[in-house]
Amino acid sequence: MSALARGGIYAAVLILAALAGTIPVAAQEFPTRPVTLIVPWPAGGATDRHFRVLAETTSRHLGQPIVVDNKPGGSGTVGPATLAATSKPDGYTLAQLPITVFRMPHMVKVSYNPAKDFSFIIHVTGYTFATMVRADAPWKTWQEFIAHAKANPGKVSYGSPGTGSTLHVTMEQIALQNGVKWTHVPFKGEGEMTPALLGGHVMASAGGTGSSQLVEAGELRYLVFWTQDRLKRFANVPTLLEVGEKIVSNSPYGVAGPKGMDPKIVKILHDAFKKGMEEPAHRKVLDELDQEYIYMNSADYAAAALRTIDEQGALIESLGLKAK
């Protein structure tokens, strides 16, 4: 249906509702018009692709379309910040909350309070990360790599897609745990980082699964995944937990609305998203993106968010990135 036709139908519905004197205000009537879902990334990226599918599967259960609105900027914080500042808590405007929403306030001045300005609805998934080296690198396993780094302090270099990214933060967390010192080289995104690894300008890199085909083609090698469980596609590669690092790092994300939403509306949205998450089409897109299904209900997600804010603050402080 074209936007114009849709607009016309809504207008007609509204006029009818107004004539009958029954403009719906109560929560049990929710939703009566399309819901906007702010995705704080440009169209075409992995997250945009994921949310377009989730929006589609969820709208089947919500009974109203969910319109994806791309609002990129501020490492994924401009969208949620706009939501916090301008949207009414009526459930018609929601946003994806990437982990940067919880991390940025520790690093720069922001216009929102991550603990107080959102109504948490549902936790969906996290990204899949890995440490990788060139296929002709001398280290076949994670243990060999760590041993080498221990023996040569400061000489092992690794790339990440930016200082303060989850990938950088986790690599430094690993270094702290093992008493290793390595050299971090921050790139501007994986498009710059992966060629630098291929060209041997850095010895290792921490990134997502975008390089999987380079691994399959025998150019790169995954040393370890940072997920809870092994990946189906790379079942022979261990996780950090298996090699004894006690870390799961996945940059989790979910959906939230502005603060002060009616709990009944939160429940309606949560139930619809839950069913949308269980749809095969949604499961399939997660598989394609090598992402795990990590469901949490509204209360658990809110609690997890508060924990994440504190953890991020401590991490940022230990890395010396805290805002002055």
């Binding site: 607009g7 809504y10 207008a11 018009r33 791309n70």
Partner: peptide, 11 residues
Amino acid sequence: TQLPDGLLGAG
């Protein structure tokens, strides 16, 4: 393009 609907869309 996601042009704002404003008065027409907000209902």
